[in-house]
């Protein structure tokens, strides 16, 4: 193992914070954020104030048709008469749902119980789109519960090949298992284990999805308690864990295979910095994504590779989704 790169040393010391300003103080007080959080947003989010204001609105709800069981046309024909308004999105089988005229919630219909759709944010679907899983491949989902991305991978593979779904928490295995059953998934096996131990697996994978544990900054819209009470050290700690998981994944990825790295965090230390440090250590090609804003090539004193522009950032005020990050990397040796 080589010495830590300078940039990693920087990140391992502390999460980047900035000198408070009148603007950061005003916005933090007005919207109930810790000032260090908001001040960071000001330094890398396009139009940070619009982001904060957008996150005062109701969170959009998306459903994804489970094409293993039904077509989108058939699903729409069943849900619309029940009062659900479904709007098309840039992904063919994903719809934004307006349930204001519906008699039941979108999570309590017979169609939901029959596994005809899954409720998940559009960004989660995009991470699976980026994975580009093919029929009959072997795929690893390193943090799979509650199964939204796993069931979509199975759908993309038409229930062929093999998916290994790893989940560390025993408590989350049951909902994962139920969701796989509800969605009629046949090609998946569930392993309760720490994803850090995946490197011990004696098989290699064509595709790996690492939706890494993160600070969850991008979930502030869903969970206002995340606006405050957090510590900058949390981000640095997650960043270290993410790098370890990333390196673990690369050990069991086949040459030519694709790794998709994603987080629901805005923090560059959990996103571009992690990918950049992996590019130092492994032979990887960053591949372009057809959606989202360009990844950052710098943050404060940090400078990242230019090709990190090919990674994708998602912001609530721009993409009408939770905050999310996706990088698609191909192993070149």
């Amino acid at each position: 193992m080589r010495e830590l790169h300078d940039k990693e040393k920087v990140s391992s010391l502390k999460t980047l914070t900035f000198t408070p300003t009148q603007r950061s103080h005003y916005l933090a007080t007005k919207f109930g954020y810790d000032e260090w959080v908001l001040n960071r947003f000001i330094h890398f989010v396009p139009s940070a104030e619009s982001l904060i204001e957008k996150m005062l609105e109701p969170v959009p709800k998306y459903i994804r048709t489970n094409t293993l069981k039904i077509t989108s046309k058939e699903l729409v024909a069943r849900l619309v008469p029940k009062g659900f308004q479904l709007s098309a999105t840039i992904l063919a089988d994903v719809f934004e749902v307006n349930a204001s005229n519906a008699r039941v919630s979108i999570g309590a219909t017979i169609e939901y119980l029959l596994g005809y759709y899954y409720i998940q944010d559009i960004t989660s679907c995009m991470a699976v789109e980026a994975l580009d899983a093919q029929l009959s491949q072997r795929v690893l989902d390193m943090t799979s519960a509650p199964g939204g991305k796993t069931t979509l991978i199975a759908q993309k593979m038409h229930n062929t090949g093999s998916i290994v779904a790893v989940e560390a928490s025993p408590r989350r295995i049951r909902p994962l298992s139920f969701n796989l059953a509800r969605c009629g998934v046949m090609n998946t096996s569930i392993y309760q284990m720490d994803a850090m131990n995946c490197s011990n697996m004696n098989v290699r994978f064509d595709r790996i999805l690492l939706d890494a544990p993160c600070s969850g900054e991008g979930m502030i819209w869903n969970d206002v308690s995340r606006r405050s009470g957090r510590n900058p050290d949390d981000i640095a700690k997650y960043s270290q864990v993410q790098k370890k998981l990333f390196a673990t994944a690369l050990q069991i990825l086949k040459p030519g295979g694709i790794l998709v790295y994603s987080t629901c965090s805005f923090a560059p230390e959990e996103n571009e910095l992690v990918v950049d440090s992996m590019l130092d250590r492994f032979n990887l090609k960053v591949e372009p994504l057809p959606f989202g804003n360009s990844g950052l090539t710098g943050f404060g004193e940090m400078v990242f590779r230019d090709n990190l522009e090919l990674t994708a950032r998602f912001y609530p005020h721009i993409h009408n989704s939770i905050g999310f990050y996706i990088a698609r990397l191909r192993k070149t040796d």
Binding site: S177, L180, A181, N187, T188, S189, Y191, M193, V203
Partner: peptide, 12 residues
């Protein structure tokens, strides 16, 4: 092939 023991396989 895997030495690890799965919690669940396929569709029950």
């Amino acid at each position: 092939q895997l030495v690890e023991y799965p919690k669940r396989v396929g569709l029950i």
